[in-house]
Write a protein that binds this DNA or RNA. Structure first.
Length: 577
DNA sequence: GCCGTTTTCGGCCCGACTGTTTTCAGTCG
């Protein structure tokens, strides 16, 4: 059991205890234990009770529960609570704006035990009639339900990659060649089908083999003699396994990776790319696995420039290719540092020193710390005094590094409702740079949200605009903003825009990268890391950056240490003028 | 149930905002 699995079970237990009106303080103790353990780096599943009780928020009782979870994978108390809770009531927790109290009211007052009934109650106006609810709440619930339904059967790119790799591992022993294709190979940020190509000359035998494997649940009506469709147990996303003979593998890998829109692109003589892919005699030394060679040949025959897999979405790629070369696209190796990260000073799991050391291990030459600011009290945000203390710590740490590594002093300053940052100028002036982000009051009209961001961009202390829309993929739509106005303002005020690389956000959306580049606005691939693993999220940022055509030259954190120091110094000097 | 003592029992929590209220409960990050 991983820490987060243990924490999730404790958190759910606390939530269900509250739902079922158990003792409020007992309930809270589960919730605070989960809250504290979520930030712990201790190896919970391998700790004895006497060690566990030393952790903040963990007493004898919760320690024993953790042991039970670690040893059995279950918590008896939770299982009992779950048995008393309809699945549909649990589903209601996924609706933004519904907490325990409202869910309990909907369940007990209207007898709602599934999302369908919830929708009907909303459409009939019943929800608005409950005291404590109103027309506005009802509207919000209906909108959130609709959003949730749209996300059904989709997973984020990180989970999709994990499932795809799991399948490759499972299938490789049984087949000559297994390749990830489709949305996962294309690095789509949301995936509704995990697609793999399987090389076989005997589809009937292949089907039998697949159906003999554990945890692969076939959906027979959706399958065909050459395509197994179904699910991997435990994951609510379609798995599609397509059978091809050896000589078709590379050709199909190309075809299945690109979107229809991309394949419709006409090349020389108006022949669509798809037709070229099907009709060409390809350089197939039978089993060559050099896919790039084959795909290069296809584009060449079509008279079109080679497009990297990430960009095979629509005709944007061809417009981009008329102005750029593929070699200009940013890569992981181009990244020289990282600028939006958290530490134990706010809600991160690791210390500044440990995070910096890990960055050195990754081969980066600078680590920017941008912990939460004072308004983010829920995340233990730093007031001016703690900012000062943290900066002293960073000064000390920097003394220990040679000329090839440095920690930069940043902050993720909340953009308040009126667009101002939440420190006075004297404090803002102490940072090497400022990431300005919105964290509260996320329901705004486009006009209000845009004006709020514009004011933050105009603030001379703002270096980077953090996650511009506040969206959470598959969970929450961001607030609407006028992207052009925001990007134009960033150009005017010399503000960099973040590509938040967390697979939960990927915000700013890749569709806006090209416009930003055209306006001369650089983008920073920011992991928003709260622990070591979070730093690796920059891989997703690179993938999504490439999808949007981001070049190394326009990637802010591709600046070398020397260049970054110079840039930040110059930017500071401009403020003083 | 946990914590922290004024050491074995009494008090537990961060603040902004929204929508529903007419003084505040519920949600969120």
């Amino acid at each position: 059991m991983t820490n987060s699995e243990i924490v999730d079970l404790l958190e759910l237990t606390g939530r269900l205890m509250e739902l079922h009106d158990r003792d409020a303080f007992k309930t809270r103790s589960y919730q605070t234990a989960a809250f504290n353990l979520d930030k712990s780096t201790a190896d919970l599943s391998n700790m004895p009770v006497e060690e566990l009780v030393k952790l903040q928020g963990v007493g004898k009782s919760v320690a024993q529960k953790i042991r039970e979870i670690a040893e059995t994978g279950h918590l008896t108390e939770l299982d009992e609570l779950l048995a008393q809770t309809p699945q549909g009531v649990l589903d209601m927790f996924r609706i933004k704006g519904l907490g325990v109290k409202k869910v309990r009211t909907l369940w007990h007052e209207l007898g709602i035990t599934n999302l369908r009934d919830l929708q009907l109650a909303g459409e009939n106006g019943q929800i608005a009639k409950i005291k404590g609810f109103g027309a506005s709440t009802q509207e919000k619930i209906l909108a959130a339900l609709e959003f949730l339904q749209e996300q059904q059967g989709k997973v984020r790119m990180d989970k999709a990659a994990m499932i795809a790799n799991l399948l490759v591992e499972r299938l490789t022993p049984h087949f000559e060649r297994v390749e990830i294709s489709g949305q996962v190979r294309r690095k789509a940020q949301e995936v509704d089908a995990i697609q793999l190509l399987i090389q076989t000359s005997d589809p009937v035998a292949a089907m039998l083999t697949l159906n003999g494997l554990d945890n692969l649940e076939q959906n027979v009506p959706d399958s065909s003699p050459f395509a197994w469709r179904g699910h991997l147990a435990g994951f609510d996303v379609l798995v599609e396994l397509l059978f091809y003979p050896a000589e078709q593998m590379n050709r199909q890998l190309f075809i299945q990776t690109a979107t229809d829109a991309h394949l419709k692109q006409a090349g020389t003589g108006g022949v669509p790319l798809l037709q070229v892919a099907y009709s060409s005699v390809l350089p197939e030394s039978a089993n060559t696995t050099d896919v790039t060679e084959v795909e290069t040949a296809i584009y060449e025959k079509a008279g079109l420039p080679y497009i990297v897999p990430e960009m095979r979405e629509d005709d944007f790629a061809f417009r981009w290719a008329s102005r750029h070369k593929n070699e200009e696209l940013v890569t992981w190796d181009d990244l020289k540092g990282t600028l939006h990260n958290h530490s134990t000073w706010s809600d991160g799991k690791q210390s500044v020193a440990d995070m910096a050391a890990y960055c050195q291990k990754l081969g980066l030459s600078y680590f920017g710390i941008a912990d939460h600011s004072k308004t983010a009290s829920y995340a233990n945000g730093l007031d001016a005094e703690r900012v000062r203390q943290q900066q002293l710590e960073i000064d000390e740490l920097n003394k220990g590094f040679g000329a090839d590594f440095r920690i930069f002093k940043g902050i993720e300053s909340d953009i308040l409702g009126d667009g101002s940052l939440d420190y006075d100028n004297d404090t803002l002036a102490t940072f090497d740079y400022v990431v300005a982000s919105v964290h509260q009051t996320l329901t705004m009209s486009e006009e209000k949200a845009t004006n709020r961001l514009l004011r933050a961009i105009e603030n001379p202390y703002t270096t980077i605009l953090g996650h511009p829309t506040g969206r959470l993929l598959l969970a929450r739509e961001g607030y609407p903003i006028d992207h052009r106005a925001i990007i134009d303002a960033c150009a005017e005020h010399n503000v960099i825009i973040e590509i938040n690389a967390s697979p939960y956000r990927l915000d700013i959306d890749w569709h806006w990268i090209e416009y930003a580049m055209q306006q001369g606005v650089k983008l920073s691939i920011n992991p928003d890391a709260h622990d070591f693993a979070g730093l690796l999220d920059m891989h997703y940022g690179v993938a999504i950056g490439r999808k949007g055509g981001l070049t190394k030259a326009m990637t802010f954190n591709a600046l070398t240490l020397t260049e970054m120091r110079e840039y930040l110094k110059k930017r500071r000097a401009e403020i003083r003028k």
